[in-house]
Amino acid sequence: MDTNDLSEQTYRAILIEAESFNHDLTTHFGYLSYECENEDDYIVKAEEMVHEFLGYDEAEIDDLFFGDPPEKEGFHKALHAILENIQEVKKIAPEDREFD
Results as ranks from 00 to 15, higher is better:
Met1Phe: 05
Asp2Trp: 03
Thr3Gly: 10
Asn4His: 14
Asn4Val: 02
Asn4Pro: 00
Leu6Met: 11
Ser7Thr: 01
Glu8Tyr: 10
Thr10Gly: 09
Tyr11Val: 09
Arg12Met: 05
Ala13Thr: 00
Ala13Gln: 03
Ile14Val: 13
Leu15Asp: 06
Ile16Thr: 13
Glu17Val: 13
Glu17Thr: 15
Glu17Trp: 04
Glu17Cys: 12
Ser20Val: 05
Ser20Arg: 03
His23Glu: 00
His23Gly: 12
Asp24Trp: 13
Asp24Lys: 13
Leu25Tyr: 03
Thr27Phe: 13
Thr27Lys: 14
His28Met: 10
Phe29Val: 01
Phe29Met: 01
Gly30Gln: 15
Tyr31Cys: 10
Tyr31Glu: 14
Ser33Pro: 00
Glu37Leu: 05
Glu37Ala: 04
Glu37Met: 06
Asn38Arg: 02
Asn38Cys: 05
Glu39Val: 04
Tyr42Val: 03
Tyr42Asp: 11
Ile43His: 07
Ile43Cys: 07
Val44Pro: 00
Lys45Arg: 15
Glu47Leu: 04
Glu47Thr: 08
Glu48Val: 08
Glu48Phe: 09
Val50Asp: 03
Glu52Gly: 06
Glu52Phe: 08
Phe53Ile: 07
Leu54Asp: 14
Leu54Arg: 11
Gly55Gln: 09
Tyr56His: 04
Asp57His: 00
Glu58Cys: 02
Glu58Asp: 15
Ala59Gln: 14
Glu60Lys: 14
Glu60Ala: 12
Glu60Met: 12
Asp63Phe: 11
Asp63Gly: 04
Leu64Asn: 02
Phe66Thr: 08
Phe66Ser: 12
Gly67Arg: 01
Asp68Met: 13
Asp68Val: 14
Asp68Phe: 14
Pro69Leu: 01
Lys72Leu: 07
Lys72His: 00
Glu73Asn: 14
Phe75Cys: 05
Phe75Thr: 06
His76Val: 12
Ala78Phe: 07
Ala78His: 08
Leu79Pro: 09
Leu79Val: 06
Leu79Asn: 07
His80Ile: 00
His80Trp: 07
His80Pro: 06
Ala81Trp: 12
Leu83Ala: 09
Leu83Met: 13
Glu84Ala: 15
Gln87Arg: 15
Glu88Leu: 10
Lys90His: 08
Lys90Gln: 09
Lys91Gln: 11
Ala93Phe: 11
Ala93Arg: 15
Pro94Thr: 03
Asp96Ile: 11
Arg97Cys: 06
Glu98Val: 15
Glu98Cys: 15
Glu98Trp: 07
Phe99Lys: 14
Phe99Glu: 10
Asp100Ile: 08
